[in-house]
Design a protein around this nucleic acid. Structure first.
Lengths: 346, 346
DNA sequence: CTGAAAGCGCTAACAT
DNA sequence: ATGTTAGCGCTTTCAG
């Protein structure tokens, strides 16, 4: 009972249980337990508990070259998008006895490369990557270890992935605006080098068309980074160049917040003059003024699903790659309203 | 040059460099390099590079019982307070060749205990803990490995710690309010079981006294958790029970946001009727309406300092424990203003 | 069903 | 300055 910490080895247990160390190993392993007499198993388990034995994963890892460890690549924990995903991943991995090693890449290619090497050195059993850029070579470098992508996908190679259904999310936003009576709707697009950015833009074009609305090129403005500054810049361009614009769908909450700034600096009000919809539903956007209408993404579920998928691959790495899309919902708040019918110069 | 991944061992390098494996080990170790002929070192390094050799930390760890790994305990990554701290820790540890293992404890005692065991099993070299509760026994269980506390301290034992100077932070807030002309100032206190909660409350009492202001018991309301709900509850009590209250210092941003709710539900305006000050300066509080005046905490610096401290201890575990307090600053925004001189029933 | 033996890749005395 | 030897704690053939 008394858990005497540290350095009780398998040999100590063997001595007490009066068996050979290898028998202890067998008795304590879930897979191999069947190979040993039930009586003996009990005796060994009792001895182990008595001594406070705990298996040493390092030693085991050296022998088996498995570490029960998974590398998780994200751009930056500090981006409020990722903590819930991370939490989901960690909780799930933890249940399965795995530990996550978090790597912040800042979307820096060199950093990604070197950390990938470092993680391989540490013998991680697999990878979950939520970074914007996923080079084929990185996957190759994963050296046959399973990889699950989050919010990204790779056309070039069949890699398992989990993501929110971006197109559906944008469709919810557009349909909401259309129902309110909006016709001239603009899109502040995310980076086109990110899968999410591409898909959300595609979703925007699709659902506008489905609603019978035209989308001249000028209605879509790209942003370089999902920041308030970029949102203000791109949103501002939209406002300046599209006469009669009454609504903006932003690819990201922070971009949407930037649109607030763009509106304010032009003396326009939200939602009276222009409605704004965000994407992600990060903390506190429900308390802005106006509270942001946004597409809610089940971040934690995404993390859980990604971890589940990786765990499956860890058991059977031959499983075919598949992509899971999770359904978003729309949180309607104060930043969207019916368009004002009588507008001055706009 | 060609980095052939996987399983190039020290023996392969030895073969190519035509030396004994142990010489390779010495030549590649920073500490032991001096013991071997410069020429030989060069030859070995070249051979290693050629073969794409990478040391196997698992094997090394088994031998040295060091893992170049550090466990970081936080309540929850999802709390916006922690990501910047985490980032600071990870960046610093990474520079030193260490990897952080993040544990979300949810302030759950059992979870903490079991994870502590798990981390010991994984042979972490040290601990950084930012959890609210730090039991002595946990430290004991750390089994002699160095520990650094973040935003916490332990009277009972001499443990190294890094934190923001809570008292000074609250003093900045109180002095700001006093300068604006406030006299009846209330405090929504954090959990008294957390060091930060205690210190901020102490700081409040101190600085009120220093300003010559009285603080009846009714001016301080405790909260059970740093959430908006608790802020609304405790802040509401303050508003209901303290006639003529014109300002609230909250122990946390989220508590402050809760105070916004309490004000609104009573038909009071911020800052016109009551000023509110928060603590931490988490993302987006600068965009609330009104933008929250709050004590800015150098989170990332705290993380960096904690990692530095642990790294020192890792080098020399006999270093005496010390506590480092980092200076906060005040971000004055819109939620504070001079008190209204003519007020109706309040 | 259990014991014996070997070895994962590395390091650290000890010897030369 | 380098080689020899032993072994970290565990798993896994292979025998019995």
């Amino acid at each position: 009972m008394a858990a005497v910490r540290s350095s009780v080895t398998i040999r100590d247990v063997a001595r007490v249980a009066e068996v050979h160390p290898s028998t202890v190993s067998r008795a304590l392993g879930v897979q191999t337990r069947a190979l040993v007499n039930e009586q003996t198993v009990q005796r060994i388990i009792r001895a182990a508990a008595e001594l406070g034995y705990r298996v040493n994963p390092i030693a085991r890892g050296l022998k088996t070259s498995r570490s029960c460890t998974v590398a998780v690549f994200i751009p930056d924990v500090t981006n409020p998008l990722f903590p819930p995903i991370l939490r989901g991943i960690e909780d799930r991995l933890d249940d399965a006895g795995y530990t996550a090693l978090i790597v912040n890449t800042d979307n820096d290619r060199d950093r990604e490369r070197s950390q990938l090497d470092a993680m391989c050195d540490r013998q991680v059993d697999g990878f979950i990557s939520a970074t914007a850029r996923v080079d084929r070579e990185l996957l190759v470098a994963a050296a046959g270890r399973p990889v699950v992508l989050v919010n990204r996908s790779l056309e070039a190679a069949p890699v398992s992935a989990v993501a929110v259904d971006d197109r559906r999310g944008v469709r919810l936003a557009v349909e909401h605006l259309v129902t309110l009576g909006h016709v001239r709707i603009g899109h502040v697009a995310g980076s086109s080098s990110a899968t999410t950015g591409q898909r959300r833009q595609l979703g925007f074009l699709e659902s506008m068309r489905a609603a019978g609305l035209s989308v001249p090129k000028s209605h879509v403005r790209p942003s370089k980074a999902p920041t308030e500054q970029e949102g203000a810049r791109a949103g501002g361009q939209l406002l300046d160049r599209v006469p009669g614009l009454t609504a903006i769908v932003a690819a990201t909450d922070l971009l949407a917040v930037g649109c607030y700034d763009a509106l304010e600096s032009r003396g326009l009000r939200c939602p009276a003059d222009v409605s704004v919809v965000g994407f992600n539903d990060i903390p506190l956007v429900d308390r802005l003024s106006p509270a942001l209408t946004t597409v809610r993404v089940p971040q934690r579920q995404i993390g859980i699903a990604a971890a589940d998928m990786l765990l499956e691959l860890l058991v059977d790495s031959s499983r075919p790659a598949r992509e899971v899309l999770l359904a978003p919902t729309l949180s309607v708040r104060e930043s969207t309203a019916a368009p004002c019918t009588d507008r001055a110069g706009r």
